[in-house]
Design a protein around this nucleic acid. Sequence first.
DNA 1: CATATTACCTGACTAAAGTCCGCTAAAATA
DNA 2: TATTTTAGCGGACTTTAGTCAGGTAATATG
Lengths: 292, 292
Amino acid sequence: MPLDPIARLRRFNRAVTREVGALDTSFLGRGRPLGMARVLQLVRPEGTDVARIRDRLDLDSGLLSRFLRSLESEGLIQTETDPADRRRRIARLTPKGQTEMAAYEAIGFDRAKRLLARAGSRTDEVVAAMDLIATLLNRDQVEIRPADPDTAEARACLTAYFTELAQRIPGLDMGKLPVPDPEAASYRPPHGRFLIAWSDDLPIGCVSLRPLDPETAEVKRLWVADHARSQGLARRLMQMIEGMARDMGMTTLKLDTNSALTDALALYRATGWRQTEPYTGPPADIWLTKAL
Amino acid sequence: MPLDPIARLRRFNRAVTREVGALDTSFLGRGRPLGMARVLQLVRPEGTDVARIRDRLDLDSGLLSRFLRSLESEGLIQTETDPADRRRRIARLTPKGQTEMAAYEAIGFDRAKRLLARAGSRTDEVVAAMDLIATLLNRDQVEIRPADPDTAEARACLTAYFTELAQRIPGLDMGKLPVPDPEAASYRPPHGRFLIAWSDDLPIGCVSLRPLDPETAEVKRLWVADHARSQGLARRLMQMIEGMARDMGMTTLKLDTNSALTDALALYRATGWRQTEPYTGPPADIWLTKAL
DNA sequence: CATATTACCTGACTAAAGTCCGCTAAAATA
DNA sequence: TATTTTAGCGGACTTTAGTCAGGTAATATG
């Protein structure tokens, strides 16, 4: 490389700082200081805990309180005490607030669109680059949560998973995932489980579990987005789904895979999975089991 | 893609905003408000125009003036009137200021290093992603300047160029560029020219010219960094070097290239270059000429 | 049940950033 | 040469962000 990586990172930092600064000032076009705009953008129509806002923005209790009072007097939000703990308060967007929020959204959306347009024919590459960097920066904040296997996000994960398989296993065509997924029920509690890993609202991985018999379950559809690899996410997903299987009273896990998926195979081998008899057909050519 | 590109860009924006904010607060460790620290970082030991600083940071004239006075009274900078226009002023780092700057540099360097370390085995990919994004954001600020063909930056361009050629032309091994480059003299004024395109201090492209006879010159070593492609930079470089050849009194230009370099070829064909007799050997297999 | 803790609020205060205006001196322009 | 414009300076002022202490009501804890 012509210039050392650290110098390049700092160049990136400068470029992006300028961009972010411009974004900040563009939010000022609505006659409201930035701090208050930021608070407003965290208040949801369904209501947001005041403590959560304070936590997210790392604001002083007194300062936030004044912001809320100010937004309230503008008629953008309402606050009410949390019935579950009457010391806590919940802030809720009023219809007027929702209109105002939509205006902020439009500013952000517009800027994003214009920036992306500049990328021209390389848009896909640029988006992939942004994914890689954002995932790296968000790394400590990845959350794994159960999800319904037939939601849009779950389906997006599975589509990406099938695409990946088709690329890596020669001659494979899995076809398309039908809508609705006829197998969804077996991945849904109480029978099975479906987990999605989230990085700031972007799904970056999934794994699922379905029962074979009362004591045996099968792990399926382990997928990690390209930009999220090499960060131990697959391992975390596997640990979590294995833990769930254990909690469900399963004693044995099985999975089938293909020898072309070398990285997944290495993970399985390193975490206690052992070869077993074939129990499915192609494209699987390796069958593993693990006792819980 | 599981999520639409604009949402992904905004996720990137959020991730990066947090990071930039953290960098800013880390600059506060030296007992100086951020605004002043930012000004200090733009003052160079050789001197920087005050107007340039104001322009870069978009500061009010009065505010900047106070910052400068404050930095001056700390003994970090000196200001003097610009001899060329005695209304203007130039700020210069004192030795004490250079020490202080070095401390800020160290903070930034350290943060960058730690961030990069997090990328682990994917460091190269992450750096490439950052280059792509930074180049996109800096696009309007690319500067093309003449350079000596035997400086470190020029050599870095040429090394990248040779690597690229070796990748794209099967069976080619150009060997290494000797130090010092024995051909450098012919690319140096008054005989020839060497141009480098800069994006915020990172060389992202080059082109050169050397004389064949008093009226004919040869364009050589046209290179654009991968992350800077599809933005018309090659065209700008060619326009500029052709203009220089014209100014030198040349009437004919020549170049040789290889049919594997389809994108370069398309550019040449689209800008008035026509096929001509072979005048060099392999790896060239196409020879072009253009009348000025 | 007494006491401690927590969540939020209010008011007083400070630091930093930014705006506005008038001034001077130099340069550009008519 | 008279004028207008430009670059920078400094003072008065406002806005924004942030800190801190004290207070109230609800909840948690021994």
